[in-house]
Deep mutational scan, measured.
Amino acid sequence: GLEHMADEEKLPPGWEKRMSRSSGRVYYFNHITNASQWERPSG
């Protein structure tokens, strides 16, 4: 619920959580730099 939404908002600017269609794993994508990574971004 609300706790999940608050957790999402802690991601650094530009980052969003996405799911890989090929593997079904969650990864993180930065739409500003077009960077993507499996680890949760910090800072």
Rank of each mutant, 00 (worst) to 15 (best):
K10P: 15
M5A: 11
K10T: 13
Y27D: 00
S42H: 10
S23A: 07
Y28M: 00
G1M: 13
V26E: 09
M5N: 11
H4E: 11
T33A: 04
G1A: 12
H4R: 03
S42A: 09
P41E: 01
G24C: 03
R25S: 04
S42G: 11
S23H: 11
L2M: 13
Y27V: 02
N34C: 15
P41L: 01
A35R: 14
M19W: 15
P41W: 01
Y27S: 02
R18W: 03
D7I: 10
A35E: 14
H4L: 11
L2W: 14
F29L: 03
M5V: 12
A6V: 13
W15R: 02
L11N: 01
W38H: 05
R21P: 15
N30Y: 03
Q37N: 03
M19P: 04
L11H: 01
H31Q: 08
K10W: 14
E16S: 06
E16I: 07
R18D: 01
P12Y: 01
E9N: 07
R40F: 11
F29M: 02
H31I: 14
L2A: 12
R25K: 09
S42N: 12
R21W: 15
T33I: 04
R40T: 08
S22Q: 11
K10E: 15
K17Y: 04
F29W: 10
E3K: 07
R21A: 15
D7T: 12
W38V: 05
R40S: 05
H31Y: 14
R21F: 15
D7V: 09
P12F: 01
W38S: 05
H4C: 13
S22M: 08
F29G: 01
R25Y: 05
H31W: 14
G24L: 06
H31E: 06
P41C: 03
R40N: 06
M19K: 14
I32W: 08
N34F: 12
K10N: 13
E3R: 03
T33P: 01
Y28W: 05
E8W: 05
E8Y: 07
R40L: 06
E16W: 03
T33M: 04
E9Y: 09
K17H: 03
Q37Y: 03
R18Q: 04
N30D: 02
S22G: 14
G1S: 12
T33W: 04
G24S: 06
V26M: 06
E3L: 11
A35L: 13
H31V: 15
Q37S: 07
S42K: 13
V26W: 13
E3P: 13
G1W: 12
H31S: 10
D7E: 12
M5W: 13
P12H: 01
N30L: 02
P12S: 02
K10Y: 10
R18L: 06
S36D: 02
A6Q: 11
F29A: 02
W15F: 02
L2Q: 12
P13D: 08
E16N: 03
P13Q: 07
E16Q: 06
L11E: 15
A6Y: 12
W15P: 00
S23V: 04
E39N: 10
R25M: 06
L2T: 10
Y27G: 01
H4D: 14
P12R: 01
K17W: 03
D7R: 04
H4Q: 12
A6L: 11
T33D: 04
R25Q: 07
S36V: 15
P41F: 02
L2S: 11
E9P: 08
Q37G: 01
R21G: 15
E9C: 14
G43D: 12
S42V: 10
W38Y: 09
W38D: 05
R40D: 03
P41Y: 01
A35S: 10
K10I: 12
E8K: 09
P13L: 08
A35T: 13
I32G: 05
E9H: 08
R40A: 08
S22Y: 14
S36R: 14
H4G: 12
R25D: 03
E3T: 13
R40Q: 05
P12G: 04
R21Q: 15
P12M: 02
H4S: 10
E16P: 00
L11K: 06
P13E: 08
E8T: 10
P12T: 01
G43L: 11
S36I: 15
S36P: 02
A6R: 12
M19H: 14
S23M: 05
R25H: 06
H31K: 11
S22T: 15
H31N: 09
R40I: 07
L11A: 01
